[in-house]
Nucleic acid binder design. Structure first.
Length: 146
DNA sequence: GGTGAGCGA
């Protein structure tokens, strides 16, 4: 075992003067290792503050604004219900918005419909984020709000 | 739409 002998010799030599500089560097390196533990929880805080406006996702592509309205009207006065559709294709994007008259109704509607089935799909209801201020009526140019 | 996470004119 020439290797082991050499290692012992090296260790012995080191023990005379403590850690070799190389060993010190290694120790330093590993003790300072940036442990990015997966405990860095991927926090996804409540998407938005409670409001009368709800964001509904997971919709069936065939679900329409009317269907949304009828379904959510069971839990309060729906002021507005809209399924977002692609401007050019006209097809549903699979999510929409429901606005209640009061926050209380919105909350009950959220809790009642979140995780429920609609047209065969499990839908998810959250409070909608405040929409980007829609410009008066001139150019509908794309705005990078986020 | 055969598209499947998302925040709308």
């Amino acid at each position: 075992m020439a290797m082991r002998a050499a290692a012992r010799a090296a260790l012995s030599a080191n023990s005379q003067i403590g850690m070799g500089s190389g060993m010190k560097a290694l120790y330093s390196t590993f003790s300072r290792f940036p442990f990015k533990l997966p405990e860095s929880k991927i926090e996804k805080p409540p998407p938005a503050d409670p409001s009368t406006n709800l964001f509904v996702s997971g919709l069936n592509k065939r679900t329409t604004s009317e269907g949304l309205h009828k379904e959510f009207a069971k839990f309060g006065e729906v002021v507005e219900a809209k399924v977002v559709t692609d401007r050019v294709s006209g097809f549903s994007k699979g999510f929409g918005f429901v606005k209640y008259a009061t926050i209380e109704e919105a909350t009950s509607g959220l809790k009642a419909m979140d995780g429920e089935f609609l047209e065969g799909w499990v839908i998810f209801v959250e409070y909608a984020r405040p929409r980007s201020p829609l410009p008066p009526l001139n150019n509908a140019a794309p705005q990078r709000q986020w």
